[in-house]
C-alpha cells in the first residue's frame, strides 16, 4: 500500500482527540480547578455574599435588562485533590475487596481453565461456550439474581432453614459484594487463562513426568511458568472492573458499603453533586490503575526474561 493510505486514519485521529484525549484532559482540568464568584470589581465573594447577591438579583431585577451583579471564574486549586484524602478508607476498602475477589477468581478459575484446556477439541468449545454464556447476560440481571438468592427470606436461607440453620444476614454485607464481583467477573479470569493454557503442549508435561517430576513439580516448574501471561491478564481483567464497580456494591451492599465507584457516581449524578471532586477521585483511580497495570506487565516481562536466560 502507498504511504498516502495513512490519511485514511485522519477521521479517526480527529475522533480520538475529541472523544478520548479531550475528555481525559477535562477530568484533569476539573480535578485541579474550582468555580468561584467575584463581584464586578473582581473581589472574591464568600458563599453567603454570593447567595445574597443572587437572591437579590433574582427577586428585584428584570432578567432581560440587567447585567449579572457577579462574575463566575474558574481558578486553579488543590483542595479537591486534598479532599480525596478524606476518602482514603473508602479507597482502601475498594482495593481490599477487589483483591479478595481477584484472588478467589484466580483460585476457582485456574484449575477450571486447566481442566478445559486438556479436553478434546469439541468439548473445549462446548465448555468455553458454557463459561461465556452467563457473561453475555447483562451484569445487572446477574447481580439481580443474587439479590433473590441472598435475601433474608431468600432461597439460600430457605434451604438452610430446611436443615435447621439460619437464617443468616447475607445481603448488604461486604461478603455479598465480593460474591457479586466473583460471580460477574469469573469468566474474565477463565478465558485468558484458557487461551494461554491451550497452547501448552501435552508432550511438555509428559516429558517432565518422564524425567521424574511429581505432579507438584510438574505444576510449579512447567504449567505455572508457562501460564503466567494468562495469570497476569486475568488478574487485570478482574481487578480493574472490581475496583471501579458501583452497581454491585449498590445492589448487594445495600448502599452502606461504599466503594470508589459509588463515590464518583455520587459526585456526578447523586446528591453530593460536585464534578470537581468527582474528577479528582476519578483521576486518583485512573493513576492507581495505570500503576497497577504497569506492575503486572513488569512481572510478566521479568518472567519471560528468566525463561529466556534459562534457555
Amino acid at each position: 500500500m502507498t504511504s498516502k493510505s495513512k490519511f485514511l486514519a485522519a477521521p479517526y485521529l480527529l475522533w480520538m482527540i475529541i472523544f478520548i484525549v479531550i475528555p481525559l484532559a477535562l477530568i484533569v482540568v476539573f480535578a485541579f480547578t474550582t468555580t468561584v464568584y467575584t463581584d464586578l470589581e473582581g473581589n472574591l465573594l464568600s458563599n453567603e455574599e454570593f447567595d445574597e447577591l443572587r437572591i437579590e438579583y433574582d427577586n428585584f431585577y428584570d432578567m432581560a435588562d440587567n447585567e449579572l451583579p457577579y462574575k463566575k471564574q474558574t481558578v486553579f486549586t488543590l483542595t479537591h485533590i486534598m479532599e480525596v484524602s478524606n476518602y482514603v478508607p473508602v479507597l482502601l476498602n475498594s482495593v481490599w475487596l477487589a483483591i479478595i475477589a481477584t484472588a478467589i477468581c484466580l483460585l476457582i478459575g485456574y484449575p477450571l481453565a486447566y481442566l478445559i484446556s486438556r479436553m478434546r477439541y469439541g468439548f473445549q468449545k462446548l465448555m468455553l461456550m458454557m463459561v461465556m454464556l452467563p457473561m453475555w447476560m447483562n451484569f445487572l440481571l446477574r447481580t439481580y439474581a443474587w439479590m433473590t438468592l441472598l435475601e433474608r427470606n431468600g432461597w439460600i436461607n430457605k434451604l438452610l432453614g430446611l436443615v435447621g440453620i439460619g437464617p443468616f444476614d447475607m445481603i448488604n454485607t461486604q461478603g455479598a459484594v465480593v460474591l457479586g464481583m466473583v460471580y460477574n467477573y469469573l469468566p474474565y479470569m477463565i478465558l485468558p487463562l484458557y487461551s494461554i493454557m491451550t497452547k501448552i503442549d501435552n508432550r511438555t508435561i509428559e516429558a517432565a513426568q518422564d524425567l521424574g517430576a511429581n505432579s507438584l513439580r510438574v505444576f510449579s516448574k512447567v504449567v505455572l511458568p508457562l501460564s503466567m501471561p494468562g495469570v497476569a491478564s486475568g488478574i487485570t481483567m478482574v481487578f480493574v472492573p472490581s475496583v471501579s464497580t458501583f452497581i454491585i456494591s449498590r445492589m448487594l451492599g445495600g448502599g452502606t458499603n461504599m466503594l470508589i465507584g459509588d463515590l464518583i457516581d455520587l459526585q456526578f449524578l447523586g446528591n453530593a453533586y460536585n464534578p470537581n471532586l468527582g474528577s479528582a477521585i476519578s483521576l486518583v483511580l485512573l493513576v492507581f490503575i495505570l500503576l497497577c497495570m504497569s506492575i503486572t506487565n513488569q512481572l510478566n516481562n521479568e518472567d519471560n526474561m528468566d525463561g529466556g536466560m534459562l534457555l
Binding site: 486514519a9 472523544f19 478520548i20 477535562l26 477530568i27 480493574v240 456526578f268 464534578p275 476519578s282 490503575i289
Partner: peptide, 27 residues
C-alpha cells in the same frame, strides 16, 4: 503513540470513560 491512546478506553475503568464523556458533553 496512536495505538497506546486507542487502548485507553479499553483499559480505563468504564466509570472514568463515562464520567469523562459526560464532562465533554456538558462542556
Amino acid at each position: 503513540l496512536i495505538i497506546n491512546i486507542t487502548y485507553l478506553p479499553i483499559i480505563n475503568p468504564e466509570i472514568v470513560t463515562g464520567v469523562s464523556l459526560m464532562l465533554l458533553f456538558v462542556f
